[in-house]
Amino acid sequence: MRKKIIECSRVSKEFTTDRGTVNVLQNIDLDVYENELLVLFGPGQCGKSTFINCMAGLDIATSGHVTVNGHKVEKPGPDRGVVYQRTALFPWLTVMGNVEYGPKCRGMGKKERREKAQYYIDLVGLTGFENAYPSKLSGGMQQRVGIARAYCNEPTVMFLDEPFGHLDAQTRYLMQEELIRIWEKEKRTIVFVTNNIEEAIYLADRIVLMTNCPSTLKAEYQIDLSRPRDYTTPEFLQLREEISAVVDKSI
């Protein structure tokens, strides 16, 4: 029996604005297992980010609850790492400064945290850029820093919220490959959000399909293709077709 790391039970989220109450998430139940790479896949604006924020603790569910490793999620905390779509790197800190930020906040000594940060900077392939500022890096490199920063805090789970959404197609393929390489070297439980079907099948151990707002979970696919995966094999294309057919197309 695999160990459950994240347990969501009947998670709902409403936002109240001037124009009334919007129901974004409705009674979502989801378990994520240790070292699993779970992809949350759904149409744009369907509440994927809201769901990930509720799991991370950046937002609190209106009803229902989320536990990570048995602890109820109530506020942000370092046992959960987040990689953001728009990187959210600290622009006044160098690559090293960004990656060592988490351990530094938690009071780790300089020598120790530098070594640790260097390890993850090397892991994501940014050796030699330790002293560069984020604004001097390309989009793909910035996202590598984001991944290293999340990893360096050694969280139990990592949430990646459409991290490659802003990259050009070539860089995006490369980063998908890189993410799998990094993850296979340093296994973590990952929840990855995307609205790109190819990306979902390329990365996932399991894909969870979300519906349009108010979101519920519509279907689940266990992806057993061996890695490294190829976007053009018949199995891959067949999965792609099968899942595409089920996705909500309405806007």
Partner: peptide
């Protein structure tokens, strides 16, 4: 930028650290 504040908190920064470092 509130996203940066959120990112810092997720990385384990307390309120004082958010103020001084963000």
């Amino acid at each position: 930028d509130q996203t940066l504040v959120g990112a810092a908190k997720m990385l384990g920064a307390n309120n004082r650290q958010v103020f001084t470092s963000i």
